[in-house]
């Protein structure tokens, strides 16, 4: 017993160091692998409040760019409205039907903190649990995809940006529906890479890359970017594709969080399937 006490007395610094290191590794591992973001739910509200204060002062400098991008989006939406089309038919039967049911809802939010230069980038937005945001929702901007919600506090949420080693988004080439996984290699925030597209699929530069129908987070066919360069390494089964992203992460201000109303239903169904084996 005396030896034990002596041992603790002699090595207490090391024991302290070791315990705290162990704690950090456990927290880090849990966060990376299970998205159990309890740590951030605990501390995040405070940090986000700080960033919002900073942001509310620096926001004024970017107002012109925000205006421009909102105007562009407005123009695009207006051109999609029904009254922007010339009606080319004689009759229009309106059916009070159950064919269309809303699947996706959009919640608009402002970016209060963002980075593009790190290997793993995160974005903080000013909407949270009280606005209906939950972890694992997709996030887009007016131009393209942005990322996936990882943790929410009452009034803020943290998004794992598409510029992050742990973010993998299911995408496809629009013209032939060949699907792959969008992963960032950490070099340039303007480009990402599309992996696991089979090499027999014909490809050209400037082909559109859109979100695929496999993802439960994003509606099918949202613009992501276009093929900037592609190549096949000898002995490789897949294309190496460099995608030029439509979203400009360095000037990101307004984003939309996507709520998939049928997500839980689809998940329960798929989990039932897993139980069969």
């Amino acid at each position: 017993m005396r030896n034990l006490i002596f041992f603790f007395y002699k090595y207490y610094t090391f024991i302290l160091f070791f315990t705290l290191e162990l704690f950090s590794f456990v927290v880090l591992y849990q966060y990376n692998h299970y998205q159990r973001a309890s740590f951030l739910n605990f501390t995040g509200g405070f940090a986000s409040g700080f960033y919002e204060t900073v942001n509310s002062t620096t926001n004024y400098f970017g107002l012109r760019n925000i205006n421009d991008s909102l105007m562009a989006e407005n123009a695009r939406l207006r051109s999609q409205m029904l009254n922007a089309y010339y009606q080319n038919g004689f009759t229009q039967t309106s059916i009070n039907d159950t064919l269309y049911k809303q699947q996706y809802e959009y919640i608009s939010a402002n970016v209060v903190n963002n980075s593009v230069g790190k290997r793993n980038n995160y974005i903080t937005i000013d909407k949270g649990k009280s606005h209906g945001i939950k972890p694992d929702m997709g996030v887009i901007s007016s131009n393209g995809i942005v990322g996936i919600v990882t943790s929410v506090s009452e009034h803020f949420s943290t998004i794992r940006s598409a510029l992050n080693a742990n973010t993998k988004i299911s995408c496809m080439i629009q013209k032939n529906n060949a699907f792959g996984s969008l992963e960032w290699n950490g070099d340039n925030p303007k480009f990402s890479s599309l992996k696991y597209v089979n090499k027999h699929v014909p490809l050209n530069t400037n082909d559109e890359v859109v979100t695929s129908n496999f993802s439960m987070l994003f509606p099918q066919g949202l613009p992501v970017g276009k093929v900037y360069a592609h190549s096949i390494e000898a002995g490789d089964n897949f294309h190496g594709i460099k995608v030029e992203l439509y979203t400009d992460f360095s000037t990101l201000k307004n984003v939309y969080v996507i709520r998939n109303i049928f997500k839980e239903e689809q998940e329960t169904l798929q989990n039932n399937l897993k139980g069969d084996h």
């Binding site: 880090l28 591992y29 740590f39 405070f46 940090a47 960033y51 995160y122 903080t124």
Partner: peptide, 9 residues
């Protein structure tokens, strides 16, 4: 960590 959303890092 609190301010950069990276618990433990």
């Amino acid at each position: 960590d609190t301010f950069s959303s990276t618990p433990g890092l």
